[in-house]
Design a protein around this nucleic acid. Structure first.
Lengths: 391, 391
DNA sequence: CACTTTTTTTTCAAGGCGTGAAATAAATAG
DNA sequence: CTATTTATTTCACGCCTTGAAAAAAAAGTG
C-alpha cells in the first residue's frame, strides 16, 4: 500500500501516506523505517519545498531510484523498442532496433532482443540500480504465467519462451504481456478518476486488440493475458480474417481490412498488410468523399461498435480508450461506431458511450510495461522484507 | 471459512475442518467454541458413526438448524414459488401461488408475495429458527445492491423495490437476484469440481438468460445482478426482440422466437409467448422432420453457439450448464449450437465446448437462492461474532 | 483391571501486525 | 527564550494466528 501510494502520488510525507492508505501514523512509521533501511525509499531533499507554517516540517519520502531498474521491451511490426526505467519510474535510457519481426527466425528474434537489452544496459548513464526485471509486450496471445508468446500476428514463430531464455541470461525474472493489457495498466496510472475499476483499451491498427480492467484488476483469461476482442465474431459468415475464421471484428477494422474494403477487393480473400502511406491515401480518399473508402471506415466503426455493444451486454458499460494508428481516422470511424453501438444494446443498458482517443500507443504501452514491472517488483520486495523480518 | 466448509462438506470434526480450511487445530478450536456458544453450531449426535479405531473419537460439528431460517422466493411467468430453508440448508416447508405475474398491478404483486411468505411461515412445522433473510429471484434486471427489480419480462411494473417493502414488513434483510445468477450459486455448491472458478449457466425458455462465475465469484454488472447474454446482439439488423432491438440472441432462441420461426412468421414482428403445449407440438414437428421447425431449432442453437463463442473470445472457454424448458429440445439445438460455436471462435481459443444439460431450473434456482441467502447470513453472523468479541 | 498407545481436542506462551495515547523532535510566533 | 504547532516515534495493548505441550477419551495389552 505504501509503495503504491508513492508510485501514484510521488514523494510524500509519512503523515500524507497515513491519510492516503488509511494506516495509523505508527504503522506508517514502522513500515517506512524498514523500507528506508532496506534501501527501497530515500528522503526527498528538503530544499525543494521550504516549510510553509509552524510546526515540525514534513519529511517527504520518495522511491529510491537506485534500488533497481527494469527494462521494458515493446515488440511491434517492424521495430523493437526498449526503455530502461529506474525504481522511481523515471526513464533512464532508450534504444530501438528496426527489424521486420515477421521475417526473423526464432533464434534470430530472441538474439536480437537479448543483444538490444545488453546494449541498453551498457549505454545507460551511471549511476543506475541493478537490473531487476524485464517486461515485454507483444500483440497476440501470451500464456497466463506470462513468460511465453504463444502466438502473435507480428511473428512467424510460435510458442516462444522468452521468459526461460532471458531469465537465465540476465538472471532476473521476465514477463511477457499483451500490448493492450499493458495499455490498461498505463491508463490506470495516468487518469485514475476515469480509468479506475472497470474500463477498456482498444488498439486499432495493424490488428485490433483490447485490454480490459474489471474491478480494479487486469482481466486475463486462463491462458491468455488479454481479451480476444479482435477475434470476437461480428457477422456470421462474414469477411475473412487473418486468423482463418470469418466475420471477426478485426476482419473489418484492422488496417488490412479497411484497405481491402476501400479497394473493393473480395472480402473472402486475404491481403498483405498495407504500408502506412497506403493507409494515409485511403484516409485522404475517404475525406475527399470517395464512397468505397467512406463505406470501409463506416463498416469498420460499425464492427467495433457492435463489438463494444456485445461486450457491454456482458460486463455493463465501461469507459473506452482508443489508440493505435487507426485512430488517426477516428472522425471517419465515429459514425459507424455510434451506429453499431446503439443498434447492439438494449436501451436500459446503453448509457453513454464514453470514449476518448489517445493517438500514440507506444507511450502508453511503455508506461504500462514499466508500471507492471515495478508493481511486480514491489510485491517481491515486500515479500522479501517480510521474510527478512521473520528470519 | 469454517462455516463455508461445514455448508460444503456437512458435519465435520474439528480436525477435518482444520485440514479443509488450512487453519491450525488451535484456531479451529477457538473459533468453533465461540460459534457453539453463539448457537451457530451444534454437536452432531455421536451415535450415528461408531468410533472406528483407537484414540479419542472425533466430535462432529454441524450447523445448528434452529439458529435461523431463510425464505427463498422464485418468481416465474405464471407461478410464484416459495421455500423455507433452515440454517443447516434443509428445506422445511414450501408453498406456491399460481398467478400470471404479468397481469398483476404493482401493489397486488407485492401483496401476493408478502401474503405467501406469511402463509409459509405459519405452515412451517415447529420447531424452527427465527426468520433471518428473504431472497428473491426473478428473470430480468435487478439493481446491484440487490433489493430492486428494475425490469423483468414477466412483470408489468418496473422499479419494484421489494427490498424496502419487505425488510420493513418482516424486519429482516431482503435481496433480489437474477434467476440465472442464482443458478450459478447452486452449481458451485452442487458440482464443485466442474463449476469452480469460471463457468456459466444458460437458461433457455421463456427468455434467454445467463449467470456467470469468474474467478470463484459471481460476475455482476455495476447495475445488474447478471449478464445480459440474451440481449447480446447476434446478427446486425436481425430478428425483432421483445426488448425492441433487433438481432438479440433471445430473438432467435427464446420460446417465442423458435415458435415464430417454426410457423414461418415475419421475424420483424413480435408474437405472444406460446404456451407450453404449443412448444411441445413444434418440437414434435421438428423431430418428425418438418423443415421449418428444424430450421428454427438449428438457428436458435446457432445464435447461442455464436453467443458463447463471442463470450469465450472475451473470457476464455468455460464449462456451461444449460437449463430451462428449452433444453427439452437440446437434441434439436445441439447441431446449430456446435456449428455456431465453431464458426465464431479462433482455433487456438476454441478448446472443447464443455456443456451439460440440467433440465429443471427450479431446483437449481432454489438451491442457489438458499445458498446465497445463507452465505450472506454467515457473513453477518461472523461480523456480529467479531463485534461481540470486541465489546 | 491397570497401564500403554493412539487420536482428538484444548490450553498456553509467543509472535506478527495493527492501533491509540503519549512522548519526542523540529520548526515558527511572540 | 518560551509557548505553540505540527510531524514523527515510542510504547503498551489487543487481536489473531501458530507450535508445542497438556489433557481427554477411546482402544489395545498383559
Amino acid at each position: 500500500m505504501i509503495l503504491r501510494a508513492l508510485r501514484r502520488g510521488g514523494a510524500q510525507s509519512r503523515t500524507a501516506l497515513g491519510q492516503v492508505t488509511g494506516l495509523s501514523p505508527a504503522a506508517v512509521s514502522g513500515i517506512t523505517s524498514a523500507m528506508l533501511e532496506e534501501g527501497l525509499l530515500v528522503q526527498a531533499d528538503s530544499e525543494a519545498d521550504p516549510a510553509k507554517g509552524r510546526g515540525r516540517p514534513q519529511v517527504k519520502l520518495a522511491l529510491n531510484p537506485l534500488h533497481g531498474c527494469v527494462v521494458a521491451v515493446m515488440i511491434a511490426v517492424n521495430r523493437i523498442r526498449l526503455k530502461l526505467i529506474d525504481y522511481a519510474g523515471e526513464e533512464r535510457a532508450e534504444n530501438h532496433v528496426d527489424v521486420a519481426a515477421l521475417e526473423l527466425q526464432r533464434g534470430d528474434f530472441i538474439r536480437t532482443i537479448g543483444d538490444a537489452v545488453f546494449t541498453l544496459l551498457d549505454e545507460t548513464p551511471q549511476p543506475a540500480g541493478p537490473l531487476s526485471r524485464i517486461e515485454i509486450s507483444v500483440q497476440g496471445i501470451t500464456d497466463g504465467a506470462g513468460a511465453k508468446i504463444l502466438w502473435s500476428p507480428v511473428l512467424r514463430a510460435r510458442e516462444i519462451d522468452l521468459g526461460r531464455r532471458f531469465s537465465r541470461r540476465f538472471g532476473v525474472p521476465v514477463s511477457v504481456m499483451n500490448d493492450c493489457a499493458a495499455m490498461t495498466e498505463a491508463l490506470q496510472w495516468i487518469d485514475p478518476p476515469r480509468y479506475r475499476e472497470r474500463f477498456a483499451a482498444v488498439l486499432i491498427g495493424y490488428g485490433v486488440g483490447m485490454g480490459l480492467f474489471i474491478d480494479g484488476a487486469p482481466f486475463v483469461g486462463l491462458r491468455d493475458s488479454a481479451v480476444e476482442f479482435g477475434h470476437m465474431n461480428h457477422v456470421p459468415e462474414g469477411a475473412l480474417c487473418r486468423c482463418g475464421r470469418r466475420g471477426c471484428v478485426e476482419a473489418y477494422a484492422a488496417d488490412y481490412a479497411i484497405w481491402r474494403r476501400a479497394k473493393g477487393l473480395d472480402a473472402t480473400r486475404l491481403v498483405a498488410p498495407p504500408p502506412a502511406e497506403e493507409m494515409a491515401r485511403i484516409e485522404e480518399l475517404a475525406r475527399d468523399g470517395d464512397e468505397r473508402a467512406r463505406a470501409a471506415y463506416r463498416e469498420a466503426g460499425c464492427a467495433i461498435g457492435f463489438g463494444l455493444g456485445r461486450l457491454f451486454a456482458l460486463i455493463g458499460p465501461v469507459p473506452v480508450a482508443f489508440t493505435g494508428s487507426g485512430t488517426r481516422a477516428i472522425d471517419l470511424l465515429e459514425e459507424g461506431l455510434r451506429d453499431g453501438f446503439e443498434q447492439s444494446l438494449v436501451e436500459d443498458l446503453r448509457g453513454e458511450l464514453i470514449f476518448e482517443t489517445l493517438g500514440d500507443e507506444a507511450t502508453l504501452v511503455f508506461k504500462g510495461l514499466a508500471m507492471a514491472a515495478l508493481n511486480r517488483l514491489d510485491t517481491e520486495d515486500v515479500a522479501a522484507l517480510q521474510a527478512g523480518a521473520e528470519g
